[in-house]
Amino acid sequence: MSVDAATVRRIAHLARIALEDGEVEHLRGEINAILDFVAQLSEVDVDGVEPMTSVTPMAMKKRTDEVTDDGYPEVIVANAPATENNYFLVPKVVE
């Protein structure tokens, strides 16, 4: 499988990465080189093989669903580019 320029733009938008027009062709070539490389997996007979979900056999630990850590909003927002009254500020979403 290989991707065309429109697909490259669509993937970039899904990934929320702005692309300049001049980048599309180059990226298309690189992505297709990688897709060619991974295409060899189609040679492998995977009939009846379970996909891996956990690399070490272990049951995931569960804990009670309760708050274990809170009470410091000013620390949570300390690294944010824009905040007000311990809220994250973003451009207006709804008109």
């Binding site: 492998v44 093989v49 379970e50 891996m52």
Partner: peptide
């Protein structure tokens, strides 16, 4: 075609 197949191949590698 990609992710699921790769995770199956991973089972075989292990």
């Amino acid at each position: 075609a990609y992710y699921l197949r790769a995770q199956k191949v991973r089972t075989l590698i292990k």
